[in-house]
């Protein structure tokens, strides 16, 4: 029970990671809820083996990204077996503020949604301002590779904004 409370506290402090990762990998709110539920289950399953070697955020990113990449592959079949929760584990009160940045944000989210699974993971970590070494650790690739890939993705993103006439 104490362990469960601790887990819920950790989850509460990092709930935004779950939402953002799930949001990047699936498009519908139904799938997002289903994916968040699966991530939480996997986190809970893994929690007893968490040894503090990595920060909670690194551990959560690893599991959330791994589950999301796999989830993406079986999205269609999962729709049939998803749990019929009327409530959701993480509730999002979408207080959308319509300002001039909303369009830019939509462009950014659309760009991310079009990336391949692994590049998507990389850009999410970059936007969270993770260091190259932490990104390399989470993803399992070299720091050089992280830097080169990030630079390519940023260039593509910059081009997209230029094409859409967003100069900043």
């Amino acid at each position: 029970m104490q362990n469960e409370e601790k887990f819920l506290d950790v989850l509460n402090s990092h709930k935004a990671i779950l939402y953002k990762v799930a949001n990047a990998y699936v498009s519908s709110s139904h799938d997002r809820n289903d994916l968040i539920q699966e991530i939480i289950e996997q986190l809970w399953k893994s929690f007893e083996n968490y040894n503090g070697q990595y920060r909670y955020s690194t551990w959560i990113y690893r599991i959330a990204l791994n589950v999301s990449i796999s989830f993406n592959r079986k999205e269609k079949s999962r729709k049939v077996i998803s749990m019929p929760f009327t409530e959701t584990l993480i509730q999002f009160a979408d207080a959308k503020v319509q300002d001039e940045r909303e369009h830019d944000l939509q462009t950014l989210e659309h760009f991310i949604s079009q990336l391949k699974s692994f590049d998507k993971a990389l850009i999410l970590l970059y936007l969270e301002e993770k260091s190259s070494s932490e990104m390399a650790e989470i993803l399992g690739i070299s720091e050089t590779n992280v830097t080169t890939r990030i630079s390519r993705i940023k260039n593509a993103l910059r081009q997209k904004f230029i094409r859409l006439g967003v100069s900043g």
Binding site: E4, E87, L89, Q91
Partner: peptide, 13 residues
Amino acid sequence: SLTLNRKLLHETL
């Protein structure tokens, strides 16, 4: 905007 539904989470876990 995010709120953790602790009650439902307890049940799920």
